[in-house]
Design a protein around this nucleic acid. Sequence first.
DNA 1: CTATAGCGGACCAATCCGGTCCGAATTAAC
DNA 2: GTTAATTCGGACCGGATTGGTCCGCTATAG
Lengths: 150, 150
Amino acid sequence: MIILSKLADYGVIVATHMAADPDRQLTAAAIAEETRLPRATVAKILKALAHAGLVAATRGAAGGYRLARRATAISVAEVVAAIDGDIGLTQCSVHVAECARTNYCPTRPHWAAINRAVAQALAAVSLDAMLTPAAFAPRRPPASVHAAPT
Amino acid sequence: MIILSKLADYGVIVATHMAADPDRQLTAAAIAEETRLPRATVAKILKALAHAGLVAATRGAAGGYRLARRATAISVAEVVAAIDGDIGLTQCSVHVAECARTNYCPTRPHWAAINRAVAQALAAVSLDAMLTPAAFAPRRPPASVHAAPT
DNA sequence: CTATAGCGGACCAATCCGGTCCGAATTAAC
DNA sequence: GTTAATTCGGACCGGATTGGTCCGCTATAG
């Protein structure tokens, strides 16, 4: 299973790219070109990021986007949340009201704890950190949960 | 965004239900009834769990399922992986070969670290833990990544 | 031999997602 | 003031994935 949607994945790429030199103002077309992503899709992503206040848009001729904050102050979690919406493991975590099983489902409270761990894992990494040349990151995949990679 | 698929969510419910009294052998129909889940769906889930070796099946009349191991020895991560497949954040994490961006994408190695954190959060919780009455689990949602719950 | 129950797979419908496009609004340049 | 460039905010569509169901087969108990 893939956790992040493609769009959110692209979002991180775009945001990271902008974080590379935060002072430059880039048009959607320029970012698309430099990241090798489809132009229309990049535009859509930037819209979402702007909506969440992560990037600032300048309209009109000679307009473009730039990061609204310093790269160290934007976490991957924020970027993902801006595109995919709020992060939650189960239906229960996000739409609590709709869970008719609330009464006889003992597992529900436990998801919150796991949920927090996941959210924190994403929140702990800033765009700035994504740019650094991978120093500490291990080269091999997790290898703990693996069963059948398909 | 919801991380777990509905099916995987159900899978945890089913597995947890079985962990409640591990010595009883339950038919798929009985589990469906007791968990209030659609019978056919439960059957499908049990098949997946059996395939992964998490539950043992007895065929024929008076057959049924039971946990293959002690509830303390089965993690939520295993249940999820049995149904949704391997866990990975991005396309890169699972299908590394298909990522044409490998060369000019600086973010890739960093995903592995986040990936591990997520996997570990799921692996750290056993079915047995899911059964305990929520003692330590905080009642409030994460509140860190939240932006707009839709 | 018959009823029960899991096994394996095919199958369908619906939802979600990636991606595209277009008109409106806004600003810079001429 | 007019025109061109560029973002904004939608709607929109096709395809892929997923949730859910069903059927025929096998195996076991009585």
